Simulated scan of single mutants.
Amino acid sequence: MKSTKRLDLAITKLYTAFHNGTLNPECCKSCAVGNICDNLDSWKHLSDFHGSVELNYVGKINEMFGRRINGYSPSELLQIEAIFLSACGYQIPFGPRSKKPNNPTDKELQFNGLSAVVAFLCELDSVDNSMDYSRLFQYQNNEPLYKLSSIAGFDIIEASNVY
């Protein structure tokens, strides 16, 4: 099964953020959706609460007009973020008194979040998750075990003896 452009771009951005240490669930520019949206925070105005899947007035208007950010609708972006936060151990919607992990930049925690996000992204694009993109986020000694070699179809993972 062939991948989609928006899926390939999202995976590339998440891979880069994860391995560069720039993924942070508590920052709207550095979370899963923040990275998918090119580290811009405009997406946060689609909902009133971080991690909520409920569109606010601005979100509903953007959804109604068919607005997309890097291929994703406002409701899809909110779902992606909710899945990421939940899989990272956050109580959503996330607020000052919400349950949260002790170390939001823990690689294991982020790996769990990204694995759930990748599964959802594949589901959105009707792409079989048997491609196992989660290998992209495996690491050892804070270095990726696999690198992104090409983002065409299934041949995107290659052993990382170069790192």
Rank of each mutant, 00 (worst) to 15 (best):
S47K: 00
N39C: 14
W43E: 00
A32H: 04
P25C: 09
N39T: 10
V58A: 06
M64F: 14
P25I: 07
P25D: 00
L46G: 02
G59T: 04
D38Q: 13
R68Y: 11
P74Q: 02
S47L: 00
V58P: 04
Y72S: 05
C37H: 03
L55P: 05
C28G: 12
D41E: 13
C27K: 01
H50C: 08
S73L: 13
N39V: 09
M64N: 12
A32P: 01
V53H: 02
S75D: 11
S52K: 05
D38P: 10
V33E: 01
P74A: 08
V33L: 00
P25S: 11
D48S: 10
G34R: 00
F49R: 03
S52W: 03
G71H: 05
D38S: 15
G51S: 04
S52T: 04
G34H: 04
K44W: 08
C27V: 15
L46E: 05
E26A: 06
I61K: 15
E63D: 05
H50F: 04
L55V: 05
I36E: 06
V53K: 11
H45D: 00
D38H: 14
C31Q: 01
C31F: 02
E76H: 06
E63N: 00
S47P: 11
C31G: 06
S42R: 12
K60D: 09
K44G: 01
S47H: 10
P25M: 06
L40R: 15
G59C: 08
V53C: 11
S73K: 14
A32S: 10
S42M: 11
E63Y: 00
H50K: 10
G59S: 03
S52Y: 00
C27M: 12
C31R: 09
C37S: 07
L55M: 05
C31D: 04
D48G: 05
S42Y: 12
C28D: 13
N35Q: 05
G59Y: 02
M64W: 12
N70A: 08
S52R: 03
N70K: 03
F49W: 00
N70Q: 04
L46S: 05
Y72M: 08
L40N: 15
R68I: 12
M64G: 09
K60S: 09
H45T: 09
N56Q: 06
C31P: 00
Y57N: 14
P74C: 07
G59L: 02
I61N: 14
S30E: 15
N70H: 10
P25G: 08
L40Q: 15
K44T: 01
E63H: 07
V53F: 02
G59V: 07
I61V: 15
S73Q: 12
K44M: 01
Y72L: 06
A32G: 01
N62Q: 15
D38F: 13
M64Q: 14
P25L: 07
E63K: 07
F49L: 09
L46Y: 09
G34Y: 06
S47R: 03
M64Y: 13
H45F: 09
M64T: 15
Y72N: 02
I61F: 10
V33K: 04
S47Q: 09
N56G: 07
C28Q: 12
C31V: 08
A32E: 03
P25T: 06
D38K: 13
F65Y: 15
